[in-house]
Design a protein around this nucleic acid. Structure first.
Length: 710
DNA sequence: AGCACGCCGACT
DNA sequence: GTCGGCGTGCTC
């Protein structure tokens, strides 16, 4: 099957097919390849093809168009396709257009992207095995129908919710592509209810609904909420935490049109859904929607593109929208729907800024918890209420330090400190993973007196337990402090069990990283404290303030969701810069003011959303090699046609310049015109492939379109 | 990416 | 003599 056709006459008798194969970008195979087939195969059909010495899973792509460039090989030089998986319906036109756009926009080959978003297990199945899976799936389906349960009661809508829904309904009726909807409402204002109702309407019209969430952690609870409302409907999840068999099963259910609702993380934006009728992107501002390796796509942006392509409504929901989406709404390209109040009359917690400058400075060591905050924590424990202390840094201390010779626990492989983890007495690098037992004495001078510098959640938990010793709950028991972060939840199911303990009231003071600020609904928390958030104010990352504001708003949203307690709930922020505009806006819960000031800064600095960015990154054993490659790349770019509309900055080391002994440099490209930037990247890519060959010692290069950080 | 081919050092 | 080191280059 995979041999070359024996004669030119035979070759001429076969059909020519374009096939997208899974070849990585640096292979130089960007476009689909030509093969021969004895019978016609519809575009979107999965099949095996020979490539070199291998047999790969690939996808029949659309025939070449008139204007397509690239040389056409004579039929005698083409190989024949292998067996097709034609038990599976072909991936439809809309899906192919989505992939074609995404591959082009993020500068990857179609096949590479397409195969990376299909369930990995498809690669291992032949036609017969696939038929078996499909049969099993059909059987499961009939069993599920028999066990339908009663749907839960539907709550009444607030005026704002009803109005939002009315607008969505109108958009669902129209035939043209509706504008994206920006659903803007604080935590607890009932955004999820709007998704549920909009989904209900789409389902009633016989359509499928796609709901995206930023993190795997958030899928189970959202799934539970949808399952409760839509009993009897077929709901599946799609994320990388599924077993290969589950992922295939769920994907097939979506692709065959059997699943009514698909809930998932960013990769679910590529789910094949033949009856798609609505897309919702929850917490649309969340950075997790941007893929950080391989094809660096933004699932939120692709959701918007997909909705336009399929002429279905897309709802972007957030209490703190991304400045990109906010600006689109300002310009009238997105329709803004505001949910101004919390459901049930609950108020947002009162924000209090605690000025750290007012503390006596002569102690030399600053305390993590100021006396007034400690007092507030004490009071909550004594009243039987819960508190959340938020510190976005895990481990015991970020660095270990020798007071004698000034040694610090740097990582031998990275330009970063190794973090002191007291629990297992290790020094661990959070970037390359290298771990080592904590030395007894300074490795440099032998001094025994080495001390942790700064603090992470582990140390904060320890200090809080100490500070709250002797404080009693109303039932006479001692105060209980617990911690939730990436270290405490490494084991499967441990996040759920720890959250369960908090919900059950078995914890009085919860210490956590941003992990606990996302989505989890803690009914009894009346105090949220951010202990040391200032670092982001002075970060070189232009999006750091936006992220901090959203994180603090989200953390504040953890408090007072129970209306009975809302009146007395508070958010404390300990800061050295209480006058900073970010904190002043937070004080007033005023996202709009914050967004306006940030947008003004971005505009004057020529940053997104007023300019479009792309990064070229290079990795090598030495910074010189990486830099030389980038400089050559800049020269090549200058010679290309759209270069005039483009600004190419000099190469600089990445903020984490060395990871695992690899030196990393990057170069920023900026343009006011997205098409000009896109055109340049397209023309640049072949030149970069050539340059890679000329620059010995260059390990890898990559393009990041619309990077999150520069 | 795989998987060839290719051209130089220490082993049965 | 040849086993294998990983540099270089190709895959319709």
């Amino acid at each position: 099957m995979s041999e070359l056709p024996a004669t030119p006459a035979l070759a001429a008798a076969l059909l020519r097919l374009r096939v997208a194969v899974d070849a990585p970008q640096h292979s130089g195979i960007a476009a689909p390849l030509d093969y021969l087939s004895e019978r016609p195969l519809a575009p979107g059909t999965l099949l095996q093809v020979p490539l070199g010495k291998r047999e790969l899973l690939a996808i029949v792509w659309d025939p070449a168009q008139e204007g397509d460039q690239g040389q056409v090989l004579p039929a005698e030089q083409l190989r024949q396709v292998g067996p097709a998986l034609d038990a599976l319906p072909p991936l439809n036109e809309a899906w192919r257009r989505l992939l074609e756009f995404a591959a082009g926009y993020y500068q990857r080959s179609i096949g590479e992207l397409a195969l990376s978003v299909l369930p990995p297990q498809l690669r291992e199945l032949d036609g017969k095995q696939l038929q078996g899976r499909l049969k099993k799936l059909a059987k499961l389906r009939t069993e599920a129908d028999a066990s339908a349960i009663e749907a839960s009661a539907v709550p009444e809508l607030s005026v704002a919710q009803a109005e939002a829904l009315q607008r969505i309904d109108t958009l669902m009726q129209t035939d043209a592509a509706p504008p994206p909807l920006l659903l803007y409402g604080v935590t607890g204002s009932g955004k999820t209810e709007v998704y549920l109702r909009a989904a209900e309407h789409a389902l009633a019209q016989g359509r499928q609904v796609l709901v995206l969430v930023p993190e795997i952690n958030l899928t189970p609870q959202l799934e539970a909420r949808f399952a409760e409302r839509f009993a009897g409907r077929h709901i599946v999840s799609l994320h990388s935490g599924l077993t290969p068999a589950q992922r295939l099963r769920h994907w097939l259910a979506a692709h065959l049109g059997e699943a009514d609702l698909v809930l998932g993380t960013r990769l679910a934006v590529f789910a094949s859904m033949p009856r798609l009728g609505l897309i919702a992107v929850d917490e649309e501002h969340d950075p997790s929607y941007k893929q950080q390796d391989g094809a660096r796509y933004s699932a939120r942006d692709l959701a918007v593109y997909r909705a336009r392509l399929e002429r279905v409504p897309v709802i972007l929901g957030s209490a703190t929208p991304s400045l990109e989406s906010w600006q689109h709404a300002n310009a009238g390209r997105y329709q803004r729907l505001a949910l101004p109040a919390r459901i049930g009359g609950g108020a947002m917690p009162r924000v209090r800024l605690f000025d750290m400058n007012s503390l006596p400075r002569n102690k030399g060591v600053t305390t993590a918890i100021s006396a007034p905050l400690l007092h507030a924590l004490r009071q909550r424990v004594e009243r039987g209420e819960q508190s959340l202390v938020f510190l976005n840094r895990r481990g015991y201390a970020p660095v270990l330090h020798c007071g004698e010779c000034n040694w610090k626990s740097d990582c031998p492989n990275c330009s970063a400190w190794r973090v002191f983890h007291k629990e297992d007495r290790t020094l661990r690098c959070h970037h390359c993973g290298v771990a080592e037992r904590v030395p007894r004495a300074c490795p440099s001078c032998g001094n025994l007196d080495i001390a942790p510098l700064g603090r992470g959640t582990e140390r904060l938990e320890e200090q809080l337990a100490e500070m709250l010793q002797g404080v009693l709950r109303p039932d006479g028991g001692p105060a209980r402090v617990a911690r939730i972060d990436a270290d405490s939840t490494k084991l499967k199911g441990s996040l759920e069990s720890q959250l369960g303990a908090v919900h059950a009231g078995e914890v009085d003071v919860l210490v956590g990283t941003q992990m606990v600020t996302k989505g989890h609904d803690f009914r009894r928390i009346t105090l949220v404290a951010a202990v040391n958030p200032d670092a982001a104010l002075f970060s070189s990352d232009f999006r750091a303030p936006e992220r901090l504001f959203s994180l603090l708003m989200q953390a504040a949203g953890r408090a007072g969701r129970d209306a009975a307690q809302a009146a007395q709930s508070e958010m404390w922020v300990q800061t050295w810069h209480p006058q900073h505009a970010l904190y002043q806006a937070l004080l007033a819960h005023d996202f709009e003011r914050f967004a306006a000031s940030q947008l003004a800064e971005r505009e004057s600095a020529g940053l997104p959303p007023f300019a479009h960015l792309a990064l070229l990154r290079a990795e090598a054993r030495t910074p010189e090699v990486a830099e030389a490659f980038l400089k050559a790349a800049a020269e090549a770019a200058a010679g290309l046609s759209t270069a005039a509309q483009l600004l190419v900055y000099p190469p600089v080391p990445m903020s984490m310049a060395r990871v695992a002994n690899v030196e990393r440099m990057q170069m920023l490209l900026e343009s006011a015109s997205r098409p000009a930037l896109q055109a340049l990247l397209r023309a640049w890519l072949p030149e970069l492939q050539q340059l890679k060959r000329e620059h010995r010692g260059l390990l890898r290069w990559a393009i990041d379109v619309d990077p999150l950080a520069i």
